[in-house]
């Protein structure tokens, strides 16, 4: 694979630490783990995006992609998605829903709100790892993120 020179930052919104660990494990292979920021619920995700709360001091760039779980404490995934897509300064961030649910209403709602991709986490670990890897590679490496996203030179 032709690895381009810059890497995008990935904001992962996931409340389950095991899923976080498994996802990070899957991303290890392409050395993407350092670029992953984890928010543990919807509120934290919005705090990060709006540079408030514990993220007050961060630089004002947007992530290259947002991996969003739907079932989240406090503010759920669909609401986070709605907020992002309604905000002029955030709506360009590509959002990938990454969830266990294959329920039709979740998919329909997500697409209606303008999600960029919808991925069901496979139960099978190999499939899961592959899915995450491909997602990471595509959104953080292959895809050219919108202007204003955080990038760094590949080491």
């Amino acid at each position: 694979m032709n690895i381009v020179e810059t890497l995008g930052r990935i904001l992962m919104v996931e409340d389950d630490p095991k899923d976080v660990e498994l996802t990070l494990t899957a991303l290890e292979e392409y050395n993407l783990t350092n670029e992953v920021v984890v928010a543990r619920d919807g509120e934290e995700a919005l705090d990060y995006l709006y540079c408030r709360g514990s993220f007050k001091m961060r630089t004002n760039d947007n992530p290259a992609v947002l991996l969003l779980d739907l079932k989240l404490p406090k503010i759920d995934g669909l609401e986070v998605l709605k907020t992002i897509k309604a905000d002029e300064s955030l709506k360009m961030i590509p959002v990938v829903v990454l969830t266990s649910s294959r329920e039709e209403r979740d998919m329909v709602q997500s697409y209606k709100l303008g999600v960029n991709a919808y991925v069901v986490k496979p139960v099978d670990f190999h499939e899961f790892v592959n899915a995450i890897k491909e997602l990471g590679v595509f959104w953080a490496i292959i895809n050219e993120p919108p202007p204003g996203s955080i990038k760094r030179k590949q080491v």
Binding site: D16, K18, D19, L22, S100, K121, V123
Partner: peptide
């Protein structure tokens, strides 16, 4: 759909 799959995925993973 949401909750029963996650622990399963973890067991496998």
């Amino acid at each position: 759909s949401h909750d029963l799959r996650a622990p399963l995925r973890h067991m496998v993973g």
